[in-house]
């Protein structure tokens, strides 16, 4: 999976063979006079990791809540694991993992006690090749909470609390996992641990993951594909690479000659640098070639949409 992700384009092609796990067609959501979602379309295939990006208030959380079956949509078709989430039964529910933006529940419980208890709800729902729940010790090790097993949940730090939320989200070894801003409040180390966890879930358990985040670097690292939600629609859908190329093929080349600094934008950075060396040879210094980052791409797409 990792290798395919690095190949960018080919992963999208390879993904076509997998069955669709999430299918959204013309999804609409209206709150009073405001239509937050105005016809959202996308498909997620088995084993994909998808990042849903967009400005605040674009409807990311609403979309996720509809897919989780927590909110009834105003219109359109939605299928998650072949079932309409609005009518999902308990067997369907057992295959879905949910991590919401914020919880403060079960403060008086101890970490191991809570994971153990919540995990037991999944025991009657083991599938072929998916034994439910994940053993508590294994789960605590996976999210780095082993040393806090006996702690009261209310006494955990913000980052530890979030890791517990993620642990509860995956305790049932879900086929599909929804994560709404999972890394808010994480320090860099916790963030990297979380990224490793997402890769493991995706690679080893073949979990399909849909996450929202405001951290574009995170989206680029984790996601096979990025969806940008703006103005109630999906305005971009593709790998970070592909989106960047759609917006602009230009790369920025910076260099210096005898202490004087230059910048040049080009769609053929390799050719430009080759010419540069042919012309100036050893006098070139401070060479830097920078392609559009996901942030540049994201901002460009949003600006285009606003116009």
């Amino acid at each position: 999976m990792k290798v395919m992700r690095d190949l960018g384009e080919s992963s999208a092609l390879a993904g076509q063979a997998e069955p669709a796990v999430i299918e959204v067609r013309d999804l609409r959501m209206r709150y009073g006079p405001v239509e937050v979602l105005q016809g959202v379309d996308f498909t997620v295939r088995a084993g994909e990791v998808i990042a849903l990006l967009g400005p605040n208030g674009a409807g990311k959380t609403t979309t996720i809540e509809i897919l989780e079956g927590f909110r009834v949509r105003s219109g359109g078709q939605v299928r998650v694991l072949g079932t309409d989430p609005a009518g999902g039964d308990e067997r369907w529910r057992a295959r879905i993992g949910v991590v919401l933006q914020s919880w403060r529940d079960h403060g008086s419980w101890r970490v191991r006690e809570l994971l153990d208890h919540l995990g037991r709800y999944y025991a009657p729902y083991s599938d072929e090749g998916r034994s439910r729940p994940v053993p508590t010790d294994e789960l605590m090790a996976a999210v780095g909470l082993t040393e806090h097993a006996g702690r009261r949940v209310a006494k955990l730090s913000g980052g530890q609390r979030r890791r517990l939320d993620v642990a509860i989200g995956i305790v049932g070894r879900p086929d599909v996992l929804f994560l709404d801003e999972p890394t808010a409040g994480f320090d860099p180390e916790a963030r990297r641990d979380f990224h490793d966890l997402v890769h493991r879930l995706s690679d080893l358990d073949d979990t399909t993951i849909l996450l929202t985040t405001h951290d574009l670097d995170e989206a680029e690292k984790l996601a096979d594909r990025i969806l940008i939600l703006s103005g109630g629609r999906i305005v971009a859908d593709g790998s970070a690479d592909r989106l960047a190329r759609e917006v602009s093929r230009d790369a920025q080349v910076r260099w210096s000659v005898r202490g004087e600094h230059f910048v040049h934008a080009t769609d053929d950075a390799t050719g430009f640098v080759r010419d540069l060396f042919a012309q100036h040879g050893d006098e070139i210094g401070d060479l830097e070639v920078r392609r559009a980052t996901l942030e540049d791409t994201y901002m460009a797409i949003l600006r285009k949409e606003e116009r």
Partner: peptide, 8 residues
């Protein structure tokens, strides 16, 4: 909500 996210 946590209860709602669990089967049964």
């Amino acid at each position: 909500l946590r209860a709602k996210a669990l089967p049964q």
